[in-house]
Design a protein around this nucleic acid. Structure first.
Lengths: 358, 358
DNA sequence: AGTCTCATCTTGTACGTACAAATTATTGGC
DNA sequence: GCCAATAATTTGTACGTACAAGATGAGACT
């Protein structure tokens, strides 16, 4: 931690502990520099920040003084903001339940908003939250593979000292803590499972406007390459949020009607897997007899279908709980910003939607 | 005027005149220093202030960039609180999505918390929200059939001029607006449907710690009485939140194993209906051949099962949207507190889980 | 075409020096 | 004891030097 930040923490301790009273004169810049064996300029940088934040006031030639505390009638409940892409019944309720429960048990409240996976709405959300007294943020990135035009607002969060963490993925140019699934190893495991079952003609469908999809695809391709399996033109179907209702379904129908059709599908998530079960049904194919299908996330969909899906797990509630705990640790200064990420290893859950060709 | 302030004025001229566009890279610190014949440290002081003020953002090793202008004037976001019983993947995400979308499009944010259907936690939630600057509340009552020990806090809301509405049910002693389903007519319609199909031995299962269940039971009984059907000892099974995993299932098993067993079940909701499909399966009975089953709420469960459920609808997202709109009308004084409730008439959706005996 | 290494560029941290500007303390004269 | 002048103290401005850390681009290699 930079020296000017360490000094800041120390001075904040003086202020918060009551050791320095309002309007009391602080030690001079020279004295503080000598006390901590640092340069006067470094001290000035620290004092400058505390002044900007309203904790101190400085008078040229006179000294540096402690500001009066803001008068507060009672201890306000502190609020944590959560930005999600969708409020859906997929896996979102589990994550939010985990977070809300963890926050409530520690006296925090939760503000929830969604971006509908749209960068402009993400911007509006961030601006809205910057205008509120939120203590920290848990953010699910919006189309994480499509850059970050709202980087200025994320940097604003840092400037305003609003800690935030990210879940499911993180914008590459940000360095906040992140909780996510090892998507590449999940993609690999799904493909490997099918290869082990004897499948050689495997098609993958990935929503690549977010990094999760991009990483799952990466793992998928790596598994095929390691087993010297050919990458045909249709082996990978890319789609985006906007085309998720049409592109993968149509592509699946098309390839299933070919003479040399795939014997297995690796899907970006359970939602798509269920939808492609329907595509198989429509072309007269039976799952898993004629076509094996895998999903991701182990959502309620994976066991709601007639054919229970083979899928990769997602931590869900635990991610929500640990996200809240990690953010509160950041807020309360118990960890440094560069705290280690939490990366969940997805576990392959083998159910009834995959079958051996051997 | 200090050089760092002169430079700041100059740069603000660049920004305000449109000469520098959002996300455009500024000249480097070195270049600015050369341009103005001042030191790099002086430049850094200026850029640091502009960063704190949100006009620029800086990336180590990359450059200094112009921030996006705020998309709307600095406007404090007002917060609406929502108290739900559970954050689950049942129908809750639909309601919340409707509410959050409606609020966000009107410049409000949403704070979410849950009571886990527990009166003590309801109290904690209310106290927490009373300590926050929320503008209004949308509340799902907790065990609405078991009185209201937290009435004092609801009166506090009124004293503090915090408008609130209720969804799904309302505590009888409160007079806030309410959005709900006509549960009694739903219970009646489910029973009537089965009677019309020729069923005469119908069992009902109702969670009666909330008024929804109590009202559904009321309709169920009214339908049987109107058709002179006998009310046997087992015709009605009551259960509560705490016993929902055991009492109805065990009761169903017990009655299905009797000689004179029921030929139809009316269930409190889809969640129970799905569970009792399993009870039928366990006693070797086929749905709907041997046993007809109905649910409530038309949740994702109703079509996820192998046998698609006959069920009654719940407005879900529309309830969330209209709840938000109604509350904002209250807040903005466009309606009086005793505004009319919104009562949805449930629609019977006939699917595959009910069969005629005729 | 992709990857790796290395040089260069750019911001970030830290320190030292020098002087300006405002305030306070000391000293000498009356 | 009071007052003016001066010195000392303290914050403010400015600059220079050095190195760290992150990003980028060129070139070599596969």
């Amino acid at each position: 931690m930079p020296k000017y930040m360490q000094l800041k923490q120390e001075i904040l301790t003086w202020l918060d502990s009551g050791r320095m009273k309002p309007n009391e004169r602080m030690p001079t810049e020279h004295e503080i520099a000598a006390l901590f064996q640092i340069s006067r300029q470094t001290v000035r940088q620290t004092l400058g920040e505390l002044e900007k934040e309203g904790r101190l006031y400085r008078l040229q030639g006179k000294g540096t003084f402690v500001s009066q505390p803001k008068t507060r009638p009672f201890q306000e409940t502190q609020t944590i903001g959560m930005i999600t892409t969708y409020i859906s019944d997929y896996i979102f309720p589990h994550i939010v339940r985990g977070t809300e429960g963890a926050l409530r048990s520690r006296g925090y409240s939760l503000t929830l908003s969604s971006t509908d996976n749209d960068k402009n709405k993400e911007r509006e959300n961030l601006e809205s939250l910057l205008a509120q007294p939120v203590r920290g943020l848990i953010i699910e990135p919006t189309k994480s593979a499509q850059g970050n035009p709202n980087l200025d607002l994320y940097l604003s969060l840092q400037v305003h000292d609003i800690p935030f963490i990210m879940i499911n993925e993180r914008y590459p140019e940000l360095h906040c803590p992140c909780l996510k699934v090892d998507d590449e190893s999940g993609g690999y495991a799904a493909a490997k499972h099918l290869i082990d079952l004897g499948h050689r003609n495997i098609a993958g469908f990935f929503k690549t406007d977010d990094l999760q999809g991009a990483n799952r695809l990466k793992g998928f391709i790596r598994a095929l390459r390691e087993h010297q399996l050919p990458l045909q033109q249709y082996t990978v179907t890319h789609y985006t949020t906007e085309t998720k209702s049409t592109v993968p379904y149509d592509a699946a129908l098309s390839m299933l009607r070919q003479q040399e059709r795939p014997t297995a599908f690796v899907c970006y998530n359970d939602e798509l897997a269920v939808r492609l079960l329907e595509a198989a049904r429509q072309t007269g194919l039976s799952v898993p007899d004629d076509l094996s299908v895998t999903g991701f996330d182990d959502s309620w969909l994976s066991t709601a279908t007639e054919v229970k899906l083979t899928t990769l797990t997602h931590p869900k509630t635990d991610m929500g709980v640990r996200a809240a705990e990690l953010l509160l640790d950041l807020i309360q200064g118990r960890v440094e910003d560069a705290a280690k990420d939490i990366v969940y290893a997805p576990e392959l859950i083998i159910r009834d939607s995959t079958r051996s060709l051997l």
